[in-house]
Write a protein that binds this DNA or RNA. Structure first.
Length: 240
DNA sequence: AAACCCCACAACCGCCTTAAA
DNA sequence: CTTTAAGGCGGTTGTGGGGTT
């Protein structure tokens, strides 16, 4: 074909589509011999008619031995929801918190289980997002409280003060971190993040759907854990 | 039985960043 | 400093299997 058209210089017509067992075997063999990397060498050294990108993707998303097989667990799902509420579609960032899961897997999971639900039931999606947001906010507030308690209790800050701030009907909700004490979060990014959480709480508190609000906060109390060793304290911490 | 639809996930594409030459 | 190859990332599409009509 190439010769017929005078394209002798064309070296490869890369194979595309689903990988065969034989191709997988060749790729695994290549990684055994040369390590993972230099993916553009695979076709030459392993005899695979796949381009480097395709090989890398196949290895990273499917063949890597440290991949976790099987369904996403409820615990992993909560992590995905939490982190997605924090980071948005930064799938690789989210994947770093889920050992053995790939960004592609998490991305697909999110799209099929949550984004799709939004099409058929926007309420369900909103609730899911609100749940994740509320969960994250609560965690942050709890951690904040813990930190403050460790810092010599000099400011006598407690969560009731914070929550009374949130509960104000005032429009004056622009968060001022000095109200919560000093130096948390420590970076500008984190300050922005916590600021958004505070606004998020305000939105939750403003929701007109009382059932949804109750449901969201009910769910919070039923979390298995967000970190096992904090659970007991967490359950006895009244954030209202 | 066959046509159609839906879902889950694998794979590709294009763009961006990084590192090496 | 510039160029280029390689890798990484997020969005999108393709594919196969199972269920429904």
């Amino acid at each position: 074909m190439a010769q017929q058209m005078g394209w002798e210089a064309v070296e490869h017509v890369w194979r595309k589509g689903p990988w065969t067992a034989e191709e997988d075997r060749l790729l695994i063999e290549y990684v055994k011999l040369y390590g993972d990397g230099r993916w553009n060498n695979v076709s030459r050294l392993a005899g695979l008619k796949r381009n480097g990108k395709s090989c890398r993707l196949r290895w990273v998303n499917y063949l890597r031995p440290d991949l976790k097989k099987g369904q996403i667990t409820p615990h992993e799902e909560r992590i995905i929801l939490d982190l997605h509420s924090r980071w948005g579609n930064r799938w690789s960032t989210i994947a770093r918190s889920l050992p053995g899961r790939t960004d592609n897997e998490i991305k697909n999971y999110w799209r099929t289980h949550f984004k799709k639900n939004g099409k058929t039931s926007s309420e369900r999606l909103k609730k899911s997002q609100a749940q994740a947001q509320a969960r994250l906010l609560k965690r942050q507030l709890f951690q904040f409280q813990q930190q403050q308690q460790q810092q010599q209790q000099e400011d006598h800050i407690d969560m009731k003060k914070i929550m009374s701030y949130f509960d104000k009907e005032s429009d004056d909700r622009s968060p001022s971190f000095t109200q919560f004490g000093q130096e948390y979060p420590s970076t500008t990014d984190e300050q922005g993040f916590l600021s958004s959480l505070i606004n998020g709480y305000a939105n939750l508190a403003d929701t007109s759907n009382e059932d949804m609000t109750i449901s969201i906060w009910d769910d919070l109390w039923n979390l298995d854990d967000f970190r096992g060793n904090n659970r007991a304290n967490f359950q006895h911490t009244n954030f209202y």
